[in-house]
Design a protein around this nucleic acid. Structure first.
Lengths: 338, 338
DNA sequence: GCAGTGTACTTGACCGGTTAAGTCACCGGG
DNA sequence: CCCGGTGACTTAACCGGTCAAGTACACTGC
């Protein structure tokens, strides 16, 4: 089956292919009657512009790129990324942009992928996740002048548009809630310490704990995986003065922490309260269901995609603050038993 | 920053761009010395062939497409898809093919996306998941002559290459294991009944149960979500003659089932044994860890990508049988308490 | 000494769009 | 009546590769 081209339309409409191009792109230069006729023919023969030809002649590639730099085993289980991707799609699909995905092993590889994509003119912009301090990707994106949005920065002024949320505020709310329930020994199991948003959360956690007079508030770094979540939880729970509440930086580690508590014969929430960051169906799935810091991950992704498309269109956009995660209390938090 | 083109290389090497093309593609027509020189220049200036230009002149687009037709909330939590995607990437990345993703709401939309991609010449082939009986996508793919591989068919002769695994054999093993432990009332919570692999599993489950004399073996259909998994489990457990073991078609529903059992005060595995299909870190995360039918999802994906690239290269490939899922016993299965 | 055969290139058409520049008919104003 | 302006097109160059066809030159064999 032959792919229809604008030449086919031109022939059937009895006009030149230039006229067809103008008609299809809503440009002036054709009469309304001709435009209608051309659009009808395009519709009839199922025409779709060859994206290669379009990209080649200087126009958009109509695709954006996303690199994921996490080991496969954690990518699979973390609902976060898929939620984000669904959000991108909702927005990109509506404007018939494609999403090109690449799983990589390191930030260096991400940079390589950006360079390749840029050279190949394969994409019009990229979505950057897992921002680090002095992230090596940012200068490269600037050098290549590749439109980009960063998901989850700190919200500070940045050369690249950021979609950020007030993680500090969210964690403060969680700590306040636990304190209100009567907890005074609160610990935290964090994500990868290199990531900027982990640092933001850690700073806010320390600040609120200090201001509330919780002196032994400790953060144990982990890496978002269940294994590390379990390990960190065990470390916290075997200590003499064990915490009565733990806040986890993602849902996977929180679920793992719950299992460790159960395995050690501790009751949740009786002996230990648990708060998960990033509410996902996973949190409501386990018993007891986990109190979580919820946000609309998919909406977050949609917003990022929207801003990226704006940036691609040359509209200069500044940082955008997304909805702050809010506490959704469920069965895993309660006043501590004495 | 200007993108380097073959013309830039040609100028620097003092040859024509045709020669550069031959050199870069390993074609005969240039001397070894010239080829080396050209490759060195390409390397030096960081040349990447413009994928649009390449695709336009009849060559490959060097991209494959994947559509995901599941609601966002289930996509996010199911480790299966991300595992699969990681597997694709491992293979595609190695051959510097890109993966283009699109989340859709219905098989009809998937067909539309295929047509659009084909018209746009955006991709060289597609990966098809969630095959149904008389799947409407298959004739379209044939009509468009779009290379494709289907993941998770029945293994029966098919117009489109299938990567399949012996799900019947796997479920038979699981049932035999439970019977050997002493169970006689075994139920199953299945995935979406329309999907071909669900039907294969249901058929095999019924057959092995009949052959082992288990007459009240029932399959409750669900949809892979935690909510449905919980509901199905409750339905099974409130009945008078409740099962002592349940096999779930995915890990998410199994985890949900575990929570329901705990919530109802039933001990797992004492009162109820649980087997999950598709082992993922999720299964080892909960307490007790779930006995699962494991397979190398990521390897499965890699194999599919490999076959697809073969199909794109015009090599005719037949159905490929992947590794059969094997039982990984963990803490959620034990002999039933009397 | 010259036809025949390679090898190592060059040339230029082509893929299917976009778009600047050109053409032509028609209209209104001076 | 002619001129300038505008609308509705057409023409053709261009994007950056690929590849068939053409060319130049060396070598080989009789």
């Amino acid at each position: 089956m032959k792919r229809p081209t604008i030449a086919d339309i031109a022939r059937r409409a009895g006009v030149s292919k230039g006229a067809v191009s103008y008609a299809l792109n809503g440009q002036p230069g054709v009469s309304e009657a001709t435009r209608k006729r051309i659009l009808a023919i395009a519709q009839e023969i199922g025409f779709n512009a060859n994206s290669a030809a379009r990209a080649l002649s200087g126009a958009r590639a109509r695709a954006v790129g996303l690199t994921l730099c996490r080991p496969a085993r954690i990518l699979g289980i973390e609902p976060w990324f898929m939620g984000l991707i669904s959000g991108f799609e909702a927005e990109l699909g509506a404007q018939s942009y494609a999403l090109t995905l690449q799983v990589v092993a390191s930030p260096e590889q991400e940079v390589e992928v950006y360079r390749r994509w840029w050279g190949e003119r394969r994409i019009d912009g990229v979505i950057v996740t897992d921002l680090r301090q002095n992230d090596i990707r940012i200068p490269v994106l600037q050098q290549l002048q590749l439109p980009a949005v960063v998901i989850g920065g700190s919200g500070e002024p940045s050369p690249v548009t950021q979609i950020w949320s007030d993680d500090g505020g969210a964690i403060t709310e969680a700590v306040r809630y636990l304190v209100a329930l009567g907890h005074s020994r609160i610990a935290r199991v964090s994500g990868v310490p290199d990531l900027l948003h982990t640092q933001v959360r850690t700073k806010a956690f320390n600040e609120v704990c200090t201001s509330l007079g919780l002196h032994d508030a400790v953060t144990v770094p982990a890496d978002y995986t269940g294994e590390e979540g379990s390990r960190a939880t065990r470390r916290l729970l075997i200590g003499g003065d064990r915490p009565t509440a733990i806040i986890y930086d993602n849902d996977v580690m929180a679920v793992a922490g719950l299992a460790v508590a159960q395995e050690m014969g501790l009751s949740v929430p009786g002996d230990l309260s648990i708060v998960a960051w990033d509410d996902s169906p996973l949190c409501s799935l386990v018993h007891p269901p986990l109190t979580a810091l919820s946000r609309d991950v998919s909406g977050y992704g949609a917003q990022a995609a929207r801003e990226l498309l704006n940036a691609v269109d040359g509209k200069k956009v500044g940082n955008v603050k997304a909805q702050t995660a809010h506490l959704t209390p469920r069965g895993s938090t309660a006043p501590p038993r004495n």
